[in-house]
Design a binder for these strands. Structure first.
Lengths: 313, 313
DNA sequence: TGGCATATTTGTCCAGGACAAACATCTGGA
DNA sequence: TCCAGATGTTTGTCCTGGACAAATATGCCA
């Protein structure tokens, strides 16, 4: 039950605190220490690891690199300078194709200008429409922000700020679209993410696209246990389960989860998976929508199938 | 790297999958098995625990009871009937004082009527105003839903649905209030929760209250690492850091986190903590606002202090 | 070049022991 | 009667060091 997040004075952190702050499991932290000699935490009087703040900062750098594809054995133990240098090389190609929109957003984020950011996003929605914003611009912005973060150009709190403002703007646009007369009809779509996936942006953009198609959308928010998603599908009589995956989630976990879900709901309920997760592949009973712009046609096709299936009798 | 979420055919789950689905740490699952003989998972060919679905379901019941205050030693190992019986007794006293509003909400949740739920919440905001909704009705509803869940009357997905609809309604009301003319001025308030705290409802209600007072509010969303909150405070020139704690969070963790944060930001930045966390106590440099209705007077007092401090020169 | 077999790296799991924080219970004083 | 403090029990988290399979890299042949 010892769970002192951090020490009082000297900024030491327990292994549990480091796990949360860096996203590295305790087992991994211990095995890195055993194999590579880093991290090299102090011990408190009861021989428990206490990580100094600078080692935690280094661990965050390492995590970024590992996520970007570097192998732990090659980067754990190297100096902060080396790591920063490697970080600078990551994601650089993306800067070239970055849009004017994204540049402006990154600038505002750099200046921590929350109100300005919200205004720009809002103006973009008004100018280009919710469809283009959710399907094209939004994902582009999210990717640009993610890349900037992994390059070390943004702090975590600035990424949080972006997420928050983006969510606010998009949600209010979705509300407006829902209120705007358009008759709602099937398919009835249930949105959520798996327990390992806390990112809500992809889900929200998908919700926008389905809303524009006049679907009956119901969101469960993020991180719903898989059996609960299945239970909700029954309770809401859902036609489609829309599950969102960010690029952070291991593809294997995603596929295993989709298998589990597929086994728990009847065949008549479709499962549509989407998001930036690279290894996502369609399988029997599970469609994969590579881009958000594919949602419109897919819904049209679903409705055609539905009509076809019901009229012949 | 073995991370098979669930087995293929026979609905067996690995310890990692159970940890995610039930929210019980691996270490706890193992030590319960050692001490109480339950859970009692099968082993795969490499001697790794594989939990049958029914044991996982029982673990979910147990988790509810433990969260409601029962001691593991008294409930782990008992029959499903016993557990369900205990669950029925939990939170019963609260039913007496439940309001008409809450009853209606619980009914709609039971029926999984998302649209009806949103309409009722929206109507309540319009009738009683954002202030009363955020400060009085909202917390009451959240408590009623939490109690109903711990009594086993609601599924997790229904609680998710409530959170989602509540968030949508409250956020759109906040947006409306921000748009409504009222001049924004200091204090500049930064909202977030600590990394262990994923609940956003309390934060959102607090944001509503500060917004009504005409403050300049900026939300970082939930689960911001503590050093990042401090960095954001500098970047945004915040006057007040508003940190929200649900009743789920251990008081000691909360206090330790507040200590750490206090040490990282200058004395001129105030820290205001609030939420349902029982053990929360004020300390030097950290105020505790027991109820959301206390926010209004507290802001007034802050402004008085500010004027007093700046005019004498 | 591309496909396949082999080697290395790496994350997760296991057992069983230890201990401090959290919680329950008992005790004495206002 | 009730509250504060001392004492005992329960419980979650941490430890070590070993093991192995999935993931990744490397070598080889067509």
């Amino acid at each position: 039950m010892t769970n002192s997040d951090t020490s009082d004075g000297s900024h030491l952190m327990s292994i549990a605190a480091v796990e949360r702050d860096c996203g590295l499991p305790k087992d991994t932290l211990r095995v890195w220490e055993r194999r590579y000699g880093f991290p090299n935490p102090l011990r408190d009087r009861h021989d428990e690891r206490m990580y100094p703040a600078d080692q935690v900062a280094t661990l965050r750098l390492i995590r970024r690199l590992v996520e970007a594809g570097h192998r732990p054995g090659k980067v754990v133990g190297r100096s902060d300078e080396d790591l920063s240098e490697l970080l600078r090389q990551v994601g650089v190609p993306a800067v070239q194709v970055i849009g004017a929109e994204a540049r402006q957003v990154l600038e505002l984020l750099g200046a921590c200008d929350a109100a300005g950011l919200r205004d720009v996003l809002h103006a973009t929605v008004l100018r280009d429409g919710l469809g283009a914003f959710a399907a094209e611009i939004g994902p582009g912005l999210a990717e640009a922000v993610g890349a900037a973060w992994s390059r070390g150009e943004l702090e975590i709190h600035q990424e949080h700020l972006f997420t928050e403002q983006f969510t606010t703007v998009l949600r209010s646009a979705i509300n407006a679209a829902q209120g705007a007369g358009l008759p709602r009809r099937r398919p009835r779509v249930l949105f959520s993410t798996f327990p390992q996936e806390p990112h809500s942006l992809g889900l929200l953009m998908a919700e926008a696209m389905f809303t524009l198609e006049g679907c009956l959308g119901i969101s469960l928010g993020v991180q719903t246990p898989i059996p609960e998603i299945a239970a909700a599908a029954r309770a809401h009589k859902a036609d489609i389960l829309a599950i969102s995956f960010s690029s952070m989630i291991p593809a294997l976990q995603a596929l295993a989860g989709l298998n589990e879900l597929r086994a728990l709901v009847p065949e008549t309920v479709e499962i549509w998976a989407g998001g930036a997760c690279p290894g996502l592949r369609p399988k029997p009973g599970v469609s994969v929508l590579r881009a958000l712009s594919a949602i419109g046609p897919a819904v049209t096709a679903w409705r055609a199938r539905e009509d076809e299936g019901s009229t012949p009798e």
